[in-house]
Design a protein around this nucleic acid. Sequence first.
DNA 1: TGTACATCAGTGAACGCGCGTTCACTGATGTAC
DNA 2: TGTACATCAGTGAACGCGCGTTCACTGATGTAC
Lengths: 208, 208
Amino acid sequence: MRYSKDHKAETHERIVKNASVRLREGGAASIGVADLMKEAGLTHGGFYAHFASRDALIGEAFAHAMEQTAKRWRKRAEQAPEGKELASIVAGYLTAEHRDDVGNGCALPSLGAEVLRANPKTRKAVAAKLEEMIDIISEQMPVQAAKAARREAIASLATMMGTLMLARMAGAGDFSEEILAAGRHSVLQGEASAKPRTKKSKPAAGRT
Amino acid sequence: MRYSKDHKAETHERIVKNASVRLREGGAASIGVADLMKEAGLTHGGFYAHFASRDALIGEAFAHAMEQTAKRWRKRAEQAPEGKELASIVAGYLTAEHRDDVGNGCALPSLGAEVLRANPKTRKAVAAKLEEMIDIISEQMPVQAAKAARREAIASLATMMGTLMLARMAGAGDFSEEILAAGRHSVLQGEASAKPRTKKSKPAAGRT
DNA sequence: TGTACATCAGTGAACGCGCGTTCACTGATGTAC
DNA sequence: TGTACATCAGTGAACGCGCGTTCACTGATGTAC
């Protein structure tokens, strides 16, 4: 072959990564085949050696963005001092840096509305990843009952993504900072140093 | 004139209303001039007698969606029994009906990501409307201190819109219902029958 | 070791199509006289 | 009251442009003999 063993796989991954950034920044409609290939240093004709269609790429870009977000949370939870797992995730989430980095940020606020317009297969994959993400937060909840932990995990996730969206809508001034602070206060009140529900000796298990 | 006095204004409004539904459902990219005019019973050429450009229409559609949402909340707060204003807004918000009616639903979850791609003028107008919406919720908060009320209003709004988005991402099954219930529980816990901060004798004032 | 062939990631011209915008025109009504 | 003209919301053909997709081709490398 002309290229190294997994050269094609690397190219494929590069295209998907770039697409997932653009997807978060500008929505699926902003993804242009020619632009994307140019960004990857290739010409547009080669696109169809990697993807069956533009829509297939969009599906992969969704999956990549969701998985990247989940990975980030797992890593944060693992690296945080015991009892500070949730606080660490929230502190990393509700920041001006995250607000301003839409393309590499959490998939949920960027893609929540977008996924409604995606094909059924993509929608299902996204819903499954969402379950995973809820599990990750749920494991860090300072509540003993699993049911309550799950309920609170969902609400915390909702508050986090909602806060980030509102902060983005508000722009980058005092109003936006106020929103971020309100979200942090709400999610973390009275839970700053409580113990998570599960030990973190093992990486988080997959979804149910 | 060929038509009644405010015929043109009515046509204009009809186009904007239709556009604001499409904007919420499919994003700005889904708004096609020809489609929209056809929906209004007209031909595409007449569009430019009403709007300077497609982009100008999109700006009006944003404003309409935001104002419609704010109006709905004011109405709900006015019609609710005293002490149940916030509960009434939340109960109307976190329902399967609202989840399934994206086009006529709250502007925030549908347009939060979309507005980041709009022009600066539209972005500013949306941010101003967001302030108004926070004020509406803030006035119904069962807290005496204005600062705390505003903080809690922001967090409630974030949780509400975040919950609705998560429920939409989850589809329409048990998982989705669970999300809605978690959001209702979170926003309303312990506040079900507290008194709002302000009397509702007068319609809510404009934003600061 | 040398030669002919197969492989296949990537190239770039070409296609069909839809879209935003322009523009000369229509035709019903209000107004001036 | 009747006639000629001005107004203007709406019509529909035409335009230029960008985009997704197709396809014959390239050329460097691995493999068979």
